[in-house]
Amino acid sequence: MSLQPTRPMMAASYGLLAIAAVVSIVPFLYILSTSIKDTRSLFSYPPEWIPDQVFWGNYAKLLQETSFLNWTANTFMVGIMITVLKLAIDAMAAYALAKLDFVGKRAVSAVLLTAVAIPVAALIIPLFFLVRDMGLLNTYWALILPALANPLGIFLLRSFIVSLPDDLLHSARLDGAGEFRIFVQIILPLISSGLVVHAIFTFMLQYTNFLWPLVAIQTESRQVLTVGIASLKSNFVVDWGLISAASLLATIPITLLFLALQRFFMAQSLSSALKG
């Protein structure tokens, strides 16, 4: 639908997009401004957007007096572990569902697909007890293992593998290649863009996760970023400068990732558009 838009429509579109851009960006600029003010000048009215004197105390306090760096390291460690394991597990399952014949294939697909509709928030109580009985409460494994259960990624990768021509596999099989070799040497390289999309999706989901880490981790220094930052707000006297600095720093890793892999982020939306 790209008919030549009329002039007023063009103007209205730019107007709307300008509003959208302002609404998207102003909160970020405002916490940036808050984070470089001391708390007293925060309450001055009208607010100063650019303080006369830049105050770095909030950042210094965040890095020195809280476990912010620990939380960041934990988030990355857990996120990377989950992403690597999940990619391997889901790619293998996706290959079986896409290209191998076996008894019960339709049943396995149907069961996995049905589970996509189960709200994970409803499982936190039984998961809490399961992880506790395994002795994993308060460990990284408590965050890593349950994240591997979500079957959505299998279907994402399956859609990439299904479109590969069968002849490719037939000729490899005739040459005597085993299924595992075909999977590693032929399939994986051909679906690399699918793997990147899945990796980003998985990592982002972990990076933004809040409820389960809140339940599964009690030790403050082992916490992930989201819960750690939230805990800054639970002090009796809320230190707004500290919270704004923490919120702003938490946006940086994901921003860098986004700028580096932008075209895959957009592809993520695109592929969900096609498959729901």
Partner: peptide, 23 residues
């Protein structure tokens, strides 16, 4: 515009909510 409008989506909902306390 696409990049700017997409930017808030990247943030954890928790960070978005915290930012809203400043709004």
């Amino acid at each position: 515009f696409k990049t700017i409008i997409y930017y808030p989506t990247l943030q954890p909902i928790l960070v978005a909510a915290l930012m809203f306390t400043f709004v």
